[in-house]
């Protein structure tokens, strides 16, 4: 058996492009139907990364921008596995994260929220999954913050997560939320996802077993990328 195409994306599970309660999606969502493409070499390949591309400290957001001491905030570990739809681990894949600081402010020129910048917190990190698909970061828990959508919208605390997988068709960006946050259910961006079971997939549970006593709490966030079909019978991408 030779691996072939990736399973089609479940468009009823993924958010549609036009979600009017998230206002910015209105002028930025295509109106024409997407063209369904049978995958070729262009889609089943993708960039390959190695340990030479990143530094070991890149996954430690408590230390990777520290100038005069540690950043302010609740110390947490975020860990989990990258798997595919067939329950196989996705090894050696690049995971990148970015987030607000503990007060809910990003170190970004366009963020003007009144909460202060933390001089010791950059707010981004990256790592490669190990051979079994595991990854981990150390950071501080991000704060909730207001955003311009309805007059009084607040984002639940979240960490942005970007994952590559082994091919360009698996590329995914999502957001991780924290168990128990009452703002999750009220967020128009969260609610761009139509199926409530899919929303649950983005909520990381508190994982006391992975906490470090007297040091850091932990949250567990598994990520699932598209799986691929096996060629049980010939249907070659490359012809005969």
């Amino acid at each position: 058996m030779k691996p072939a195409e990736y399973h089609q994306r479940d468009r009823l599970w993924q958010p549609p492009q036009l979600t009017p309660n998230y206002k910015t999606s209105v002028p930025r969502s295509p109106r024409q139907a997407l063209l369904s493409l049978e995958q070729s070499m262009s889609e089943i390949t993708g960039p390959v990364f190695g340990h030479g591309d990143i530094d070991p400290i890149d996954n430690d957001l408590i230390r990777n921008y520290a100038k005069t001491g540690d950043p302010i905030g609740e110390r947490i570990i975020v860990h989990g596995r990258v798997l595919d739809e067939n329950n196989r681990p996705v090894p050696n894949t690049l995971v990148e994260i970015w987030q607000a600081n503990a007060g809910g402010r990003y170190r970004h020129r366009k963020d003007t929220y009144l909460a202060p910048i933390d001089p010791n917190f950059g707010g981004c990190g990256r790592t490669l999954t190990d051979p079994d698909g595991f990854y981990f970061f150390r950071t501080v828990k991000p704060g909730a913050y207001p955003w311009r959508n309805w007059v009084n919208n607040w984002r639940p605390a979240h960490i942005h997560v970007s994952v590559f997988g082994a091919s360009f068709s698996q590329r995914l960006i999502t957001q991780m939320y924290f168990e128990g946050d009452p703002l999750i259910a009220k967020c128009p961006i969260v609610n761009s996802i139509p199926d409530p079971r899919a929303v649950q997939q983005l909520i990381a549970p508190l994982d006391l077993n992975a906490a470090i006593p007297l040091d850091s709490l932990a949250y567990k966030f598994d990520i699932t990328l598209r799986g691929r079909r096996s060629t049980l019978f010939e249907n070659r991408l490359e012809g005969n």
Binding site: P15, N87, D111, H160, V199
Partner: peptide, 24 residues
């Protein structure tokens, strides 16, 4: 026993600090 693909969320207005910090 297939898993479901993790749902996507917007990259948001601050994607630059995460994925292209130097360029921003």
């Amino acid at each position: 026993d297939y898993r479901k693909e993790t749902p996507s969320q917007t990259a948001g207005p601050y994607v630059h600090i995460g994925l292209a910090p130097g360029a921003s």
